[in-house]
C-alpha cells in the first residue's frame, strides 16, 4: 500500500532543466519512478534526462499531454510560490516542494489557497517522499531504504536518512518516508501524516522525527493519544539548542521560551510514546518492538 506516492504516481518535475532538478530527475528515474513530464518556462518542446522526459512550458500543458498527477518542485525560492500555485491550478492533487527559503508571507497565501482547493502540499523545504520499491519523489537517497512495515515522518531531511539507514541496516523496511519540511508554514503536518499511516494497512509502526520550534509535536502527541492504535517511536532534535537562535531551518527556533525539545519530549512521553535519546536508538526501539 504505502501512502501518498506509489507505482501509480505519474510525476511531473517543475524546474527539470536546472542543475538540481535534472540531477534528481535522473535519480528518480533510476529508482523506477514514473517521471512523465518536466516543466521549465521557455523550454517547452525540449527533452530532459537524455531524451527520456518531455519538457513543457506550463504545468497545464504537461498535465494534458501526460496525465501527471503529482508534481515535485525544484525551482528557486522567489519563483516557487508561483510554481506551487500553477500546479494546483492545473489540477495536480499532490505537490511536493523541495525548495528552501520561501518567505513565510508567501506561504501563508499559498497554504490558504491550497486549502480552499483541497490540494495537498508536502513541504516546502523538505526532502520529499519515498515509498521504497515503488516511487521516489524528491531528494531522498533511494538506496538506503527498503520496503517494509515502518512509516517514517520527519521535519528534517538528512536526519530522516539517518533513521531510514539504521532501520534498513537492521533489516526493517519502510512503508513510506515522508519529509514534511522545516519551515514554519508547511502544507502537511505531523497529524496529517500520522492519520494516513494509521489508515495504511502496510504500516505497523511509525517513526516521528521532530525538532525545536512551534508546537506540532505537542499537537501530534494529542492525536496519538486520542486516535492512534499503531505504536509510535519519536526523536526530537535540538536538546542542546540555545533559545532565540534559528537552527538552520526557518522553523527551528525556540521563541519566548516555547518550542523547546524538553517540552516536546515531555508531551510525547506523557502519552506513552517512546522518545529515543539519539537517532540510531530509534531503530533499536523499533526492532525491540517488533521482536
Amino acid at each position: 500500500m504505502a501512502i501518498l506516492v506509489d507505482k501509480n504516481t505519474r510525476l511531473l518535475v517543475q524546474g527539470i532543466t536546472g542543475r538540481e532538478g535534472e540531477f534528481h530527475s535522473r535519480q528518480m528515474l533510476e529508482y523506477g519512478t514514473q517521471v512523465v513530464a518536466g516543466v521549465t518556462p521557455g523550454k517547452g518542446g525540449q527533452f530532459a534526462c537524455d531524451g527520456r522526459v518531455p519538457v513543457f512550458d506550463t504545468v497545464a500543458e504537461a498535465v494534458e499531454a501526460t496525465g501527471a498527477n503529482t508534481s515535485v518542485i525544484y525551482v528557486p525560492a522567489r519563483f516557487a510560490p508561483d510554481a506551487i500555485l500553477e500546479a494546483a491550478d492545473a489540477g495536480i492533487g499532490l505537490i511536493v516542494c523541495i525548495t528552501e527559503g520561501i518567505p513565510v508571507m508567501d506561504m501563508i497565501q499559498v497554504k490558504a489557497y491550497l486549502d480552499q482547493k483541497g490540494v495537498r502540499l508536502i513541504g516546502p523545504n523538505c526532502p520529499g517522499l519515498l515509498s521504497p520499491g515503488q516511487a521516489k519523489v524528491g531528494i531522498m537517497p533511494g538506496h538506503i531504504a527498503t520496503p517494509g512495515p515502518v512509516g517514517v515522518v520527519s521535519r528534517s531531511g538528512t536526519l530522516t536518512y539517518e533513521v531510514v539507514y539504521a532501520l534498513t541496516a537492521r533489516g526493517i523496511g519502510q512503508s513510506t518516508c515522508v519529509g514534511i519540511g522545516g519551515d514554519p508554514i508547511i502544507g502537511t503536518r505531523f497529524v496529517d501524516v500520522l492519520e494516513m499511516f494509521e489508515a495504511d494497512p502496510q504500516t505497523e509502526q511509525v517513526v516521528m522525527i521532530g525538532e525545536i520550534g512551534g508546537n506540532d509535536e505537542e499537537i501530534a502527541a494529542k492525536f496519538i493519544a486520542e486516535r492512534m492504535t499503531k505504536p509510535v517511536v519519536a526523536f526530537i532534535a535540538g536538546r542542546t539548542a540555545p533559545p532565540g537562535k534559528r537552527m538552520g531551518h526557518a522553523g527551528a527556533i525556540i521563541e519566548g521560551g516555547t518550542g523547546t525539545a524538553a517540552e516536546k519530549i515531555a508531551a510525547l512521553e506523557a502519552v506513552g510514546v517512546h522518545v529515543a535519546e539519539h537517532p540510531e536508538q530509534i531503530a533499536e526501539l523499533i526492532a525491540a518492538m517488533r521482536s
Binding site: T158, L159, E162, G182, I209, G238, A241, G248, A252, P279
Partner: peptide, 28 residues
C-alpha cells in the same frame, strides 16, 4: 541538514562532550 546538525550536537553532549557550534552546510 539542520535536523541532523542539531542531532549531532545532541549526541556529542549525550556522550559527554560539548558542541562548539551548530553548522549546516545546506543542501547541494
Amino acid at each position: 541538514g539542520a535536523g541532523l546538525a542539531m542531532a549531532t550536537m545532541d549526541i556529542i553532549k549525550h556522550f559527554g562532550g560539548e558542541p562548539a557550534n551548530f553548522l549546516d552546510i545546506g543542501g547541494g
